[in-house]
């Protein structure tokens, strides 16, 4: 499986990373280099193997239903690049 320029652009758009036209070709070759190398996994016989999503061999621990957080609007907003009062602000979104 190798990426064509259109796929590189589509992936970049999905990832919300601006890629200029002159960046596409070098990126394409680097990504294909990595993907080509990853192809070796196709050699492995994985029949009947359950995927391992994490190394922690436990069940999920649950917490009690209590309000223990919040009420820190100022701290939550303190690092915001743009804000309006108690809101975060972004360029207007048109639905």
């Amino acid at each position: 499986m190798s990426l064509d320029p259109a796929t590189v652009k589509r992936i970049a758009q999905l990832a919300r990373i601006r890629v200029t036209d002159d960046q596409v070709a070098p990126l394409q070759s680097q990504l294909n280099g990595i993907l080509g190398w990853i192809e070796q996994l196709q050699e492995v016989n994985v029949d009947g193997v359950a995927p391992l999503t994490g190394a922690a061999d436990m069940a999920l621990r649950m917490r009690e239903d209590r309000v223990t957080d919040g009420g820190i609007a100022e701290k939550v907003l303190a690092n915001a690049p743009d804000r309006a009062g108690e809101f975060f602000a972004v360029p207007k979104v048109v639905e």
Binding site: R63, D69, G70, G71, A73, V76, G85, E86, F87
Partner: peptide
Amino acid sequence: SQAKLFSGASTEFGAEPNSQVSFV
């Protein structure tokens, strides 16, 4: 529920903006 699914912030309706928000 009192608190959110994955954080301890309150679920109450109608609070001041961003006042029921944890860092999570």
